[in-house]
């Protein structure tokens, strides 16, 4: 017990010594100490206030800097996003340009195709027109067995389809010494009633009859006349030429022969003679149709051609 109280007793003794020492110092010295302490405290607080002020200012500056950086950051973000948008737009423009190019190319192709179709349509229209002409011509030639009507139709075909103004149709006699006029339009029938074959200077018509090759005038048709016809067409029956069609002149508006005319010439060369011959045979048979039962007794093979028959 006595041991534990010993330090407390020492402490008390020291405090008492200090108090005794203090009380022993003069009063002026004690006042000076206090002033120094106060000055120190005041300086301490001033420094503290100054430091605080500086810290506040620094904080303020940092805050402003922070705000500035944030603004700058936002600006940069906007710029980046606007750059991206720009890139997107440029990509879109490029894509649209490509699409535009594709579309223009398609349009160009479509236009070309349309032009091709237009040209083809025009060609087909012309073909149809030609075919219609040929069909009508053939139909009309064989629509009757009346000689006068066949001749009338033949003349009409030459006038209306070919544009022939003055024309003559000749058939050879049995001995093939003459070409005899069987129909004409606007020519002197007496003058051109007969053409002898085998002369020294054969006419165009005679040459065509003998060679079987058609004659078509070259150049302007307006200058054609009796001596220089516009066209001479051989009339064929089987393999033999039996007559000719002479087109002396054509209507004024007919400046040249067209493809359709050549097709008609071919058709007339092959059909006109048989139509005429058929009508003549029918007339010779007193306009009586052959007995249908006779058809079965007819030879099965084709008859030899007229040329081979004549030899």
């Amino acid at each position: 017990m006595a041991d534990t109280n010993q330090p407390d007793m020492k402490k008390k003794a020291t405090t008492k010594r200090d108090a005794k020492r203090k009380s022993e110092r003069p009063a002026s010295s004690r006042v000076g100490d206090r002033a120094r302490i106060e000055t120190f405290v005041q300086q301490f607080f001033r420094k503290g206030a100054q430091l605080t002020e500086e810290l506040l200012q620094e904080n303020d500056q940092l805050r402003r800097l922070h705000l500035q950086l944030e603004a700058e950051n936002a600006k940069l973000r906007t710029q980046v996003s606007s750059d991206n948008a720009m890139r997107d737009l440029l990509r879109k423009i490029k894509q649209l340009e490509k699409e535009k190019g594709d579309l223009l190319s398609h349009i160009h192709e479509a236009e070309l195709q349309s032009t091709r179709f237009g040209a083809r349509f025009h060609e087909m229209e012309e073909e149809l027109s030609k075919l219609a002409n040929l069909y009508v011509a053939s139909y009309q030639l064989h629509s009757t067995l009346d000689v006068q009507l066949v001749v009338k139709h033949l003349k009409e075909l030459l006038q209306q389809l070919v544009g022939a103004q003055r024309l003559a149709i000749y058939m050879a006699d049995t001995a093939r010494k003459y070409l005899l006029l069987v129909a004409s339009e606007q020519i002197d029938e007496k003058k051109y009633a007969r053409m002898s074959l085998g002369g020294e200077e054969p006419s165009v018509a005679e040459r065509v009859f003998l060679t079987g090759t058609e004659y078509i005038a070259e150049g302007a048709l307006a200058k054609c006349n009796e001596k220089a016809p516009a066209a001479v067409l051989p009339l064929r029956f089987d393999d033999q030429v039996v007559g000719v069609i002479v087109i002396h002149s054509v209507f004024e508006q007919k400046t040249s022969f067209q493809q359709v005319d050549f097709e008609l010439f071919k058709m007339l060369g092959a059909h006109a003679a048989s139509a005429l011959a058929g009508a003549m045979l029918y007339a010779a048979a007193d306009a009586r149709l052959p007995d249908a039962t006779k058809l079965s007794s007819m030879p099965k093979n084709p008859l030899p051609s007229s040329a081979s028959r004549s030899t």
């Binding site: 229209e125 012309e126 149809l128 027109s129 219609a132 006038q159 209306q160 389809l161 070919v162 544009g163 103004q165 209507f251 004024e252 508006q253 007919k254």
Partner: peptide, 28 residues
């Protein structure tokens, strides 16, 4: 009309025809 029949054509137009086509006719 046929070529050369200009008078007929004129007369027809005067009488009230609206247009004319000359022979040989072309379908188109």
């Amino acid at each position: 009309t046929t070529e050369g029949s200009t008078e007929d054509r004129q007369r027809a137009l005067q009488l009230g025809a609206n247009a004319y086509i000359t022979k040989p006719i072309q379908a188109p």
